[in-house]
Design a binder for these strands. Structure first.
Lengths: 190, 190, 190, 190
DNA sequence: GATGAATGAGTGTTCATTCAT
DNA sequence: CATGAATGAACACTCATTCAT
């Protein structure tokens, strides 16, 4: 038995992201993805059980990649504000470099595919950040609000700022990223 | 000749929203929508040029409806904070009653269909709110930040809070809505 | 009861010819023909039993019109050659003025619709010409060949010369028409 | 992987010719052709880009086949009359054996599909015959008339004689073919 | 492992026709 | 007489997937 070809695996990943971003889930047929990746449609079924699994696994791969990038240089001993600021900067760096990945996850998250993934599994990747949030609440640094509401104000705006339309009209520079972080921090801090 | 049936028009609207929310744009075929609405697939083409136009017009109808609801009782003579609080309360009322509509618009906004609508046309509906925002900035009540960033922190979190998962786990009560508004206001206020 | 509107009848005739010539029988749908004629699709069914009858009756109308034109000035007392020359000239005059009608009949004749018309009925219109042909044979002026073969050489080339492609590249002038008639006559004369 | 099946290709060709002759282009739907050929409608799209290409390629295949048959035993050293007589005999032999193919080309030629083929490409197949025609003119054996008019009298009558109705009523025998050729030759010879 | 051929099921859309007005 | 609304049936075509190689 030959070994599965990592190049093909990667080509399929990139082709899936690219096509879904360009033409949406609906129009991204298996054969179009195969052609974009330079393989036969049948080959996709060597690597993935079916189309659904191809798309869901692409999403999970991105989320894993994203969490690794976001937690880079994570230091729980720093002041809480600095920890969050570091997370923001990592996030923006990631978004700048891999905007297409983020765009894919946004489309995915608001599609019915979203129901097929184990979100607890994915939240696990971001656990350290959540822990800091909880520490902040107990230390009366962060508002004592339902966790989901806090998350909405810290994490969601970052994603939104990466929106295609926004990023096209506003080229985000360091000063603006700073300011944006200030808004997020003001929202959650006590 | 028969006259166009408003009941059919409305049934198509509801069927489109329902199906897209349940199974996504991709799987919401014209014939499924027709069956859900209780009409023949061909009848859809009496009311809409094609599937795309059916979906886009559904989106626009919702956005119009939403803006009407959000601006209810809008009073530009009130203090700025009160104006925004009113918008929030309207928004939440709308989301509570028509969560399915909001869910539809979210999925729509991150799909390629989004590129087909004239967003300036839609933003027009929300013009009064935007004007207040600008007044707040010039009166040094609101942070002098790029408008898109402010919007990200005021409007988008509301939508996110309507997220299916969140709303399922957390039943938002009046106290929480107040708190959530506080976060938004703290983010943008000077 | 109002009287059927001759204007509408004529508009339908012209619309049918025009559309069939431009896009063929297949693509000439009832509703397109109706739109071209400026009436409702339903109105067509006031004047014609169905689409088939609309097209067949259009064909028959043209054939009748054509026979009237071709036999103009028909004089059986003239020499046989002159009679045929007169028919040719009439035919060319007709083709020049109503090329679109001729084009329609050609397409019709090689389509399965052709089986639906009573050809003996139509040949009747051209009976005088056929009689002259038979007289020519018995007077040893015209070759004693099966009638269908003779007809092939006299009448068919005229139609072919009206072919769109040909008429585009060659503008038929009087001299050429004369020459073309000479070929036809040489073919059948003894 | 499986290899493309020549049997299927041929079955599609025959099914297309048969159906178009029987019910016309319009009524010859892709699924009917597929059923007649004993394949799935989807399979047609393995062999042809779309319906149009299926029909046009069927036409071109026939024309190529026909030219091969017509030029059989072509000998430019023979007297010009003999060359043309040979072409006629080949043509009739072809028409007798493959009347359905010829019928298809006639219907095709007067349909809008006709505009989709490169006619110069097809005329190329018949180039040797055209060359002889031109030689005949310069040697004062053939009338000095526009080439298109000559062609109308030599080639088209043959096709017309293959007409379904005619061939049904008149069984063309060798003597009649001879006579018919005489008419054609008398038409063009000086 | 990798693939192009093959397909049943489905797509969005248009059709000829009927119906209520 | 005239019509736009309405539709079942059909259209050309694409889909996700399987299969033989």
């Amino acid at each position: 038995m030959r070994i599965k070809d990592d190049m093909k695996q990667a080509a399929l990943f990139e082709a899936t992201v690219k096509l879904v971003n360009e033409i949406g889930f609906s129009a991204s047929s298996v054969s179009k993805i195969a052609k974009e990746a330079g393989v036969s449609p049948a080959t996709i079924y060597v690597y993935h059980k079916n189309k659904e699994e191809l798309i869901v696994s692409t999403y999970i791969d991105i989320k894993q990649d994203m969490s690794r990038a976001v937690l880079e240089g994570f230091d729980p001993t720093l002041p809480i504000r600095d920890i969050f600021q570091n997370v923001w900067l990592n996030m923006f760096a990631y978004i700048s470099e891999y905007r297409n990945y983020v765009q894919f996850t946004e489309q995915f998250a608001s599609s019915p595919y979203n129901e097929l993934v184990n979100h607890q599994e994915i939240e696990k990747y971001f656990k350290p950040v959540i822990a800091v949030l909880q520490r902040g609440i107990s230390q009366k640094i962060i508002k004592d609000v339902d966790f989901d509401i806090l998350a909405t104000f810290i994490f969601y705006p970052i994603l939104t700022l990466s929106n295609a339309r926004l990023c096209r009209t506003v080229k985000l520079n360091d000063a603006m990223i700073e300011k944006a972080f200030t808004l997020a921090w003001d929202a959650i801090k006590l």
